[in-house]
Amino acid sequence: MDADYLPFHPNPAKPSFVAPPGAVDAHCHVFGPAVTFPYAAERKYTPCDAPKSKLVELRDHLGFSRNVIVQASCHGRNNAALLDALVSSNGLARGVAVIDPDISDIELEKMDAAGVRAVRFNFVKRLVDSTPKEIFLRIADRIAKLGWHIVVYFEAPDLEELVPFLKKLPAIVVVDHMGRPDVLNNPSHPDFQRFVKLMEDNQNFWTKVSCPERLTTQGPPYDDVIPFSRILVEMFPDRVLWGTDWPHPNMKSHVPDEGMLVDIIPKIAKTTELQHKLLVANPMRLYWPEEIAASSKGLLP
């Protein structure tokens, strides 16, 4: 582990907010354990181990039912830890992978069977080396055939340059962490409004209203981030997701308490209807559509 890396909270609070039945933590990670799943040689940071068993403990402690596990850059394109967590979840987890452009169709089918439902394209320069957009477009065309979607991670200053590329993507596009707005600016600032317009003009774009601990300049309880999240939840109630980002990779400022993060939910989704969409209906529709279809046909208890 890097000397300045902060491990995850050892004893998060029990949240006061009670999540609706079936709630999904739609953005979290597993790291290692390194002895079994080594970190990538090209990684930009070395985290603490955060294995699947700890993730399940946190899920149950917070009162959630399911997880969407996102491949983080410290594991590179080796998705072994992710796939292991998915297979052992008994269908209660889905995955977002990072893949090699030359991956075989057979490997993609194996990942699909394990529960992968998306790929992640990372444009944050401090975390990954640059990948030509042509390669991402090739990957997008391949995974679209499987019914997967695309998760993109970028920072607000890069959005204007990325918009033409993003509009070419042939599937649902989920933007991590609201496109990382600068919360020192008012939500009316052109940078955030550019993101809002992207969501307004493109019905295939979704976003995660997650990671106030990364975006804040004030620290807990992250009141400076809430107005941005609330705007997106209220404007796009059917295209928003929420997640803990556990174990908060590469945090430098403080150790987030996941119980506190859960207690922000009723501040950004102020009605039970919005909360249900954010935590249950939207992630189920995106990651477990087969269960939605079976339920509608009366095939599930």
Rank of each mutant, 00 (worst) to 15 (best):
I99D: 05
A80R: 07
P101C: 06
N90H: 13
G91V: 10
L92F: 05
H75W: 10
H75T: 12
I106Q: 15
N79Q: 05
V96M: 00
N78M: 05
L86K: 02
R77Y: 08
V96G: 01
I106A: 15
D105S: 14
V96Y: 00
V98S: 13
L83P: 01
D102R: 07
A81C: 11
N90F: 05
D100G: 09
R94E: 06
D84M: 06
G95D: 04
N90E: 13
V98M: 14
S89F: 03
L108V: 10
V96I: 15
I106D: 15
D105I: 09
I99S: 10
S89D: 05
L92M: 12
A85H: 09
R77V: 13
D105H: 10
L92E: 13
D84P: 02
L92Y: 06
I106C: 08
A97I: 02
V87M: 05
S88A: 14
A93I: 07
N90P: 01
D84H: 14
I103R: 01
A80Q: 09
V87D: 06
P101S: 11
V96F: 01
S88H: 09
I106L: 12
G91A: 03
V98K: 06
I99M: 08
G76A: 08
V96W: 00
A93C: 15
R94P: 02
G91D: 06
A97L: 03
V87E: 12
D84K: 08
N78I: 11
L83F: 03
L83Q: 10
L83A: 02
I99H: 07
R94H: 08
R77H: 14
S104G: 10
L108N: 09
A81V: 10
R94Q: 12
I103T: 11
R94L: 01
A93F: 13
G95V: 03
G76E: 03
N78E: 15
L108K: 07
A93K: 06
R94K: 15
N79R: 05
H75M: 12
D84T: 10
G91P: 01
L92H: 12
L92N: 13
S89G: 04
E107H: 09
A81W: 02
E107D: 15
S88P: 00
D105L: 12
I106Y: 08
A93H: 14
I103N: 00
A80Y: 02
D100I: 09
D105Y: 07
H75Y: 12
S89A: 11
I103D: 00
P101F: 06
S88L: 09
V98C: 11
I99V: 15
A97K: 02
D102S: 14
N79T: 03
L86I: 04
N90T: 04
V87Y: 01
I106T: 15
V98F: 02
G91H: 09
D100P: 09
V87I: 13
A80W: 00
V87R: 11
I103G: 01
G91K: 05
E107K: 12
D105V: 09
N78P: 00
L83N: 04
A80L: 00
D105G: 14
R77T: 12
R94W: 08
A93G: 03
I103H: 00
L82H: 13
A97G: 05
L82G: 11
L108C: 11
G76C: 07
A85N: 08
A97N: 04
A80D: 14
V98D: 04
V98G: 05
S88Q: 15
A85Y: 07
V96A: 00
E107A: 11
L86S: 04
